[in-house]
Each structure stands twice: as structure tokens, then as C-alpha cells.
């Protein structure tokens, strides 16, 4: 199915939650959805006949300077089509529902997004840091991140 058709299908089902279609001259088009509805939309995308996105290739956190966001890259192994969903989150206390119960692979991706950007995923079974040490301060991939001076008595900067 073409991306446009999938978008129309989704828009029909969730007229409120699907916000915007971003088609670019270069690269992949994507669909912006309401962050609060992400679980329902993803469940629909996975279970609906004809869509069957059973493969979450990538879940990334984003910092757009004025807002945060998450991006989901989906495949369907059966129909071999792809789809990209985006959500935007406020700068203060970003959080959205977890999709861990739909695709198990989201578990670690979401932990990574939390580790790097401080985006909280509700209903996640184990929302702790994954790459940085558990007692690390700050969220490194935020654009305004300032690194730690020392960690457990060892100097970090050059």
C-alpha cells in the first residue's frame, strides 16, 4: 500500500488524533499523530487487516529544540510496506503511552529514549536508564546538555 493510502485509512479511523501529513521533496513522508493516542493508533496499525505492521524497525527520541518528539518506523513483513509516525511532546515533562505491549522490541528503544532525552513512557514495565550508568545526571542528547564535570571522583572533560 502507498503511504498516502495508509494515511487516508488512518485519518478515517482516527479523525481527531491524526494531525498532519508531512511529505518532503527528499526523503520519507511521515504522519504526525496525537501523542496521547499513540497506543491505540499503533494497535490499530498492527491488527488491522491489510495493514499489519508487525515489525517496529526503529523508535527514536527527538529534540527539535522547541519541542521533543518520538518517531516510529514501521514495516509490514507480509505486505512489504513502510510507514513513519511522529509525535510531538512539550518541552516540560514530556511523556506518552508506551507501545511495549504491542511490539516487545520497543522496550529497550523506549528505555533508550528515556535515557537520552528524558521522555517518559507510561505503562512501561521497567523505565530506567539503559546506556548511561543508573546514577548519571542529565539527558545527554538534549541539545542544551552540559556534561558532568566528574563522575565518582574521576574527571571527565579533557
Amino acid at each position: 500500500m502507498l503511504v498516502q493510502e495508509i494515511y487516508d485509512n488512518l485519518k478515517e479511523k482516527f479523525p481527531e488524533a491524526v494531525l498532519e501529513f508531512i511529505g518532503t521533496a527528499t526523503g520519507d513522508p511521515s504522519t504526525v499523530v496525537d501523542a496521547g493516542q499513540i497506543y491505540n493508533i499503533c494497535k490499530y496499525l498492527r491488527d488491522q487487516d491489510g495493514l499489519e505492521f508487525d515489525y517496529l524497525a526503529l523508535l527514536s527520541g527527538m529534540d527539535y529544540k522547541d519541542k521533543f518528539g518520538t518517531v516510529y518506523h514501521l514495516y509490514s513483513l507480509k505486505y512489504k510496506h513502510r510507514f513513519v509516525i511522529k509525535t510531538y511532546l512539550p518541552k516540560e515533562d514530556p511523556s506518552l503511552p508506551s507501545v511495549e505491549r504491542i511490539w516487545k522490541t520497543a522496550n529497550w528503544h523506549e528505555r533508550e529514549a528515556y535515557d537520552m532525552f528524558g521522555i517518559k513512557f507510561e505503562n512501561h514495565p521497567n523505565m530506567i536508564r539503559i546506556l548511561c550508568p543508573y546514577d548519571w545526571e542529565g539527558y545527554p542528547l538534549r541539545k542544551d546538555y552540559v556534561g558532568q564535570e566528574t563522575y565518582h571522583g574521576v574527571r571527565i572533560p579533557v
Binding site: C132, P140, P157, V158
Partner: peptide, 19 residues
Amino acid sequence: SGGPYWEHGYHVLKGIDRV
């Protein structure tokens, strides 16, 4: 010395001789 991760590596120890 930290090698390629010398400059922006917030999580890299810049040389094992520091410890």
C-alpha cells in the same frame, strides 16, 4: 588518551592513565 572520542565524549574516560 580517549582517541576519536576525545572531544565530545561525555561518557568516555580520556585516557586510562587517569585511573
